[in-house]
């Protein structure tokens, strides 16, 4: 009788244990194995004066647009901080049919003063003076002088006019 009770309780404990694992699992590990990705993409942040800086290009740019870069500065200290960031835009043009873009070159640069209150986050958007052409690609290098980060690329789609016209026609 005693042995049966112990077995019943053990079974209940095991079921509770497994149920707990199943409930916790999605929060701690991928629900399914992703065989096609080594790791989630996570851009390297820049750190300066207790601030963490991450940067990204605009979501879309069309020929004739000025591309833009946005960076987020998170001040994790209890002090207000201010510093300058050097921002340079690198651009390259993709020639149709060619294997690669021509070599990227600096197409615009500026110095951006940043001031962030203690324990605050500031989002800065800079609009480039460059005018995007067909087949252009842009990325940005954000530098503190000692270290730098770079953004991913943004490019102009090669069929923007046709796509936009189609969208406008369907809207109409």
């Amino acid at each position: 009788m005693q042995a049966r009770s112990i077995l019943v309780i053990a079974a209940v404990a095991a079921a509770v244990f497994v149920l707990g694992q199943l409930l916790l699992l999605p929060a701690t590990a991928p629900a399914t194995q992703n065989l096609t990705t080594m790791a989630a993409q996570q851009n390297v942040p820049l750190e300066v004066n207790g601030c963490t800086i991450s940067a990204e290009v605009a979501a879309k740019v069309k020929p004739g647009d000025n591309p833009s870069v946005q960076f987020t500065v998170t001040n994790t200290t209890d002090q207000d901080v201010s510093f300058d960031l050097a921002v340079s835009e690198m651009s390259a043009n993709q020639m149709p049919m060619s294997r690669a873009m021509v070599m990227p070159s600096e197409s615009w640069k500026t110095t951006c003063p940043v001031a962030v209150k203690a324990d605050a986050t500031k989002v800065v958007t800079l609009v480039s003076e460059s005018r995007a052409r067909q087949w252009d690609n842009f990325h940005y290098v954000i530098s503190t002088g000692d270290a730098s980060i770079r953004t991913t690329q943004i490019g102009t789609n090669d069929l923007p006019v046709a796509e936009d016209n189609a969208a406008e026609e369907s809207d109409a």
Binding site: Q2, I6, L7, V8, I9, A10, V12, A13, A14, F17
Partner: peptide
């Protein structure tokens, strides 16, 4: 019995 059962169940699982 309750404690022993729980321990055995958890250890086995």
């Amino acid at each position: 019995r309750v404690i022993a059962g729980a321990i055995i169940g958890l250890v086995a699982t």
